[in-house]
Structure formats: C-alpha cells, structure tokens
C-alpha cells in the first residue's frame, strides 16, 4: 500500500480551527524529527495522533505546548501563535506530557494549586478549579498523600487533572490512559467524551483499540511526516482493521530501499 495523505474528513476550515499547525518543522542535528506538518483541529474534534516510536509525535506536541521552539512553521492555538505570542497561546491549552512528570514531594491538591497559580487563576477560582478536577479525575482518595507515594495510574490521573485544570479550549494529551486499569481507562475515556464538544483535543496513544472509542479522527505520522488523515472507521475499513492500517502505513518506512 502506498502512503497517501487523505483529505481531512471533518473539513475543518482555518476559520473554525482551534488548533492549527502550519508547516511545523524541527530537526535535532542532522535528524529531521518533524517535517513540515500542517493540520487543523476544530471544536468538538478528538484527534488521535498515532505513529511508531520516534515518528515525531512527542516532538510535535512539545512544539505545540511551547516546550520546544520549531525551526520553522507555527502552531496557532485558539488564535494565538506559539512562536510570536507564546504565553498567551500557552494559556489556551492544557498539556499532559509523556510520562506525566510531577513534583513528588507535593500532594495532588498542592500540585494543582501550583499549576492554577502559575496559569494565572486567582485564589477563589483556583480553589473551585482544584475541587472540580479532583472530582473529575477521581483523585480525592489520595489527596493527602504525596505524589511520590502514588501508583502510576494515580500519577497519570493527577497529570490529567493538571491538564484540564483551567478548562482550556485545547487539550494535548500524550498517552492519557498509559498505566491505567480498565476501569480507570473507561473513566478517562468518558471524561474526554464529556469535554470533547467544547474543545479541540489531540491525543497520542499506542493502544490502537482505544482509538475508535476516543477519537473522531486519526492522523498517522511516520518519519516526521503525516502519512494518513482520516476517520478511524475509514482507515480500519480500507486495511481490514486499524492495526493493519497502522502497520501498512508505518512499516513501509522501515523496509530497506533496493
């Protein structure tokens, strides 16, 4: 199967895009990690951002989050450029980084208060937001424990609570269900589905069976380039399953050239 870039099935026009990537490019030395990626995500869309290891997923997400600067191109978040108006753009998004790095010596509410203050919430709004996300992420039972004492699943949920704390219009979730048990995964999927109508959400995952349950659209990248952009159903139909589609799209890059 040849690699083709499918037209965006949801037909998000630039005007209603809440997250817009314009020719985003990033290299580390001689290695091109992200090569000219452009896409738009509109309100109500949950985009599954898939790709093999080292495909450029995390680099792309880090550039959108303002953690890495793109070599060229731009990410526009709810109308604000991450290149020219970084702090305002960062206020428009919630970010769950890969591995959910957290401050181990803090309690979950303390950590969330820190994030809320750093994101500019005043005291009254801060306390309300912290209470809301503790309930949403179901971490109330571990409120008095230090984050360093929590299981991987709870740490992930604390990270997720941090991402949705300010109820931002755009969410970037890097492996949001990693390390969660089936019940917790279901709860996170339900939370994402509940938030989806009002937001643009970009999710990376290695668990392909979760994609149809969470995502309305799938973008597959490989070697830093988009190799497919379609609905999960169409991708699965064309290749006889999502896993087969993923393999066909990404394994071709690993074959040695003649």
């Amino acid at each position: 199967m040849s690699k083709t870039i499918e037209p965006n099935p949801t037909e998000v026009t630039k005007s209603d895009a809440m997250l817009e990537l314009n020719s985003l490019k990033k290299s580390f030395g001689q290695t091109v990690a992200v090569d000219n990626i452009s896409l738009s995500i509109g309100k109500g869309e949950v985009l599954g951002f898939l790709g093999p290891n080292a495909a450029g997923k995390s680099t792309t997400i880090r550039m959108i989050a303002g953690v890495l600067s793109p070599d060229s191109g731009d990410a526009v978040i709810n109308g604000h450029s991450i290149v020219t108006d970084r702090q305002t753009a960062q206020r428009q998004l919630g970010y769950l980084p890969e591995g959910a790095p957290l401050y181990n010596e803090m309690t979950p509410p303390g950590f969330l208060r820190f994030l809320a203050s750093a994101r500019g919430l005043d005291t009254a709004k801060r306390e309300a937001a912290v209470e809301r996300v503790i309930a949403d992420a179901r971490i109330g039972s571990v409120s008095n424990k230090r984050i360093g004492e929590l299981s991987k699943g709870f740490r992930r949920r604390v990270g997720l609570a941090g991402a949705i704390l300010t109820d931002p219009p755009v969410l970037l979730l890097d492996e949001p269900t990693d390390g969660l048990d089936p019940n917790q995964k279901r709860a996170v999927r339900a939370l994402i589905a509940r938030m989806a109508p009002e937001k643009a959400i970009l999710i990376t995952t290695h668990t392909l069976e979760e994609v149809p349950a969470m995502c309305s659209r799938v973008v597959v990248i490989d070697g830093g380039r988009i190799v497919a952009d379609d609905t999960p159903e169409t991708l699965a139909e064309n290749a006889g399953g999502l896993e087969a589609a993923f393999s066909e799209l990404t394994l071709a890059a690993e074959k040695p050239t003649a």
Partner: peptide, 14 residues
C-alpha cells in the same frame, strides 16, 4: 532529572 522542566516550560510563565 525528574523531567518536570517540560512541565515548567509549558506554563505561561516567562
């Protein structure tokens, strides 16, 4: 060491 620099750099703080 803990990877929290990524978290800090994603915050809207100069």
């Amino acid at each position: 060491t803990n990877g929290t620099d990524e978290l800090l750099l994603s915050l809207p703080v100069g």
